[in-house]
Amino acid sequence: MADPAVPPLEVTHVIKDYPGNVRALDRVSFRIASGERACLLGPNGAGKTTLIRLLTGALSPSYGQVRLFGLGMESESFLQARRRVGIVPQLPGMYRDLSVSDYLQLVKDLYGRGDIAEVVEVFGLGPYTRRPMAELSGGTQRRLSLAAALLGSPEVLLLDEPTVGLDPVSMRDVHAFLRRIMPGRTVLLCTHNLAEAEALCESAIILQQGRVVLHERISALRQRAPALLSIRAAQGPERLLAALAELGTPGRQEEEAVLVPTPEPTTQAPELLRRLLAAGVDVYECRVVTPSLEQLFLDIIGAADARA
C-alpha cells in the first residue's frame, strides 16, 4: 500500500557531472507532492532533460538521491515504482520496423497492464495501428507517445517538451489531450512554452545553469510580482522614459510602450499620470498589465544571471 506521505518525485542534493568537467546539475533539490502539476522551466542547457533522465533512472547522479515513490534506482523495487510513471520523451525517434500496435503491445507487456484498444480510441490511433511508427506524421507520433505513456494508467507523468516541433493545430490537439489526462495525476512538464506551462501547471521549478533558482506556485509568483502600468505617449517611449526618470520612477521600454511597476495601481496610476501630463508628456494610453509567466521567468533568469 503506497504511503501517502511519500512524495512521488523527490530529488535531494543532486549533482550530475559529465566527462570534461561539465556540471549539468548542481545541488538540485525539490519534491513534487502527490497530485501536483509542476512545470520545469529553464533556458537551453539548464539541465532539464538531464533531470528527467535521472528521474527515469536512465542516468545515475554523481552525488545525491533521486527517488520515485521513495525508491532510489539502486533499489530492487525501483522498477515497480517506474511502472507507476508514464514518460513522454523529447523528440524520440520512431521505429521503422515496429508497427504502432507492436509498440503498444511492447509497452503493455513491460508495464504488465493496460488496455490498448482504449488508448487507441482515446488518441485517435485507430487508422494507424498497422503502420510503421516512422511513417506517422509528427502530430500522430506525439499522440502515440502520449498513448504509450498513459497505457499503464500511471499515477505520475513526466512530459519532456511534449509539443516541441508541432504545428499549431497539432499543438492544440496535444494540449486538449493533456488537459484531459493531467487532472488527478502528479505531473512534471518540461517545456519552453511558457504559455503552455501557465495553462497546464500550477507550480513552476526554474532551472538555470544546473541550479534551481525558484520552486513556487505560479499564483504565488504572480502575487509577488507587482502589477505593471503600460503607458504610451505621443512623444514616443524614449521621451516617456526620460520623463519617468526625472520623476524618479523606473520603467522599461517594450516596443512602443513603457512598463512601470506599480504595486498599487488604483492609487498610484492617477498620480503618475497627473505628473506626466504636468511635465508635458502627452499620455494617450494607460492600462494595468498582469505580468505573464514569460515575463516573470525572464525577470527571474535575469536576476539570477545578475547574482551570478
Binding site: I87, P92, G93, M94, Y95, R96, V107, Y111, A148
Partner: peptide, 11 residues
C-alpha cells in the same frame, strides 16, 4: 535513429 529514447522511457 534516437529510438533508444523510447526504450529508456519504458520501465
Amino acid at each position: 535513429s534516437r529510438t533508444l529514447e523510447l526504450l529508456v522511457a519504458l520501465p
